[in-house]
Nucleic acid binder design. Structure first.
Lengths: 211, 211
DNA sequence: GAATATTTAATACGGTCGTTTCAAACAAAT
DNA sequence: ATTTGTTTGAAACGACCGTATTAAATATTC
């Protein structure tokens, strides 16, 4: 008696999907539950029934988006500890970029997270602790493997920030204006960006290694 | 008959100031004209009288914020063409960082612009053309002076993006979580970040120079 | 100082949005 | 088949917000 699905597709999941799309496009404030219900083809009350309120729907949507994108593009990017640190760095960067630039369903993640970074909601705090900070430390560890573990910890973390900053910069829409007028980066283009950031960063790290 | 100031401080300017603060804090959607009027200690109708509507007030606020921050921290950062390109790069980075990290009045700029990048309004397009893109080209030119003017233009632009990305990354509030729990970077800290980004980037560019 | 233009004040309108309500439709259990 | 629990549907409530209105108050000009 737990699940009584009249319609084929679960209403709850349809809402979650529509919410991902609309929250990504409009942001939390501008998005309306009416739009979400319209796109999900459910009644207005369904949102209240399944999620309680808009805020909780957003919370679930965000967690779902994070889950999907990290599932599709794991932080290690397929590289293992056996690989050279430079290759692990490249895989890390590539995964990061695809996570925020990949079109399709998991692209919600990039947009929603970008908004969160600027205008954080309470949801972000737990995500930082559970997902982003551990992921940050993973990057720090890769960098330490490159520059040596004897370097000043703050310097290493600054380098991690430099790498993440580069990745994030390519994630937002308007900076693309400087490069091309396309709305999206094609996958080949993302590979090219991966190459650039990897090369740029490894060069920088190599110089630090020598200090 | 142009100006009839009953109160000492111009109401229009008080609104502009309050709007800068509130738009920066809340974003366009969440900010209410009532809050702005309250903080500016003017009547609700004043916003309509002086600016027409909320959207136009935002437009003026944004342009004002850009003007203030670029006035306080000019793109060249005091460096001239006579300086070494590496020094001009450092000055550029320093100005950029202070523009978005400086506390006080011009800090609105950083927050509002950060929001604009994620969720652009029509105002941004003209700003990009008039301010940001020319500023981007200035950076490109500095980079060319470092790596040589014979390099692939896209590579150079990617390098510019890498540098701007690093700067922007330190501008938002939540990444600071990874470094310290302070709400703001102290000025000395900003100098330290300037040092890091400059060193990191010059190392990377030097390697490209050798290709 | 009277006439005119400008600015401020108080209030209300119209619309949108999140949420609630309550009954109907449906599925599961007995 | 009846009962019980779950899900959906249509409509409305209540609050908030941007904007408009209108008159009063204040400057400016002659």
């Amino acid at each position: 008696m737990k699940k009584a699905n009249r319609t084929g597709a679960n209403a709850r999941e349809r809402i979650l999907e529509a919410a991902g799309e609309i929250f990504a496009e409009c942001g939390y404030q501008k998005a309306t539950v009416r739009d979400i219900c319209g796109k999900a083809a459910v009644n207005l009350a369904a949102i209240n029934y399944h999620f309680g309120d808009k805020e909780n729907l957003y919370r679930e949507t965000l967690r779902n988006a994070v889950f999907l994108s990290y599932q599709k593009y794991p932080p290690d990017g397929g590289a293992t500890g056996a690989d050279r640190p430079e290759d692990r760095l490249r895989a890390y960067i590539r995964s990061f970029l695809f996570r925020i630039l990949d079109p399709g369903r998991s692209a919600w993640f990039g947009k929603i997270i970008s908004r969160e970074i600027i205008e954080p909601t309470p949801v972000l705090d737990s995500l930082i602790k559970e997902v982003f900070y551990p992921n940050f430390l993973r990057l720090v560890s890769i960098i330490e493997d490159i520059v040596g573990r004897d370097k000043d910890p703050e310097t290493v973390r600054f380098c991690a920030a430099s790498i993440l900053g580069q990745c994030l910069y390519f994630g937002n829409s308007k900076t693309r204006f400087f490069f091309l007028n396309k709305k999206r980066f094609a996958p080949e283009k993302i590979e090219g960006i991966t190459d650039h950031i990897t090369r740029f960063s490894i060069n920088a790290l190599a110089a630090i290694n020598k200090t």
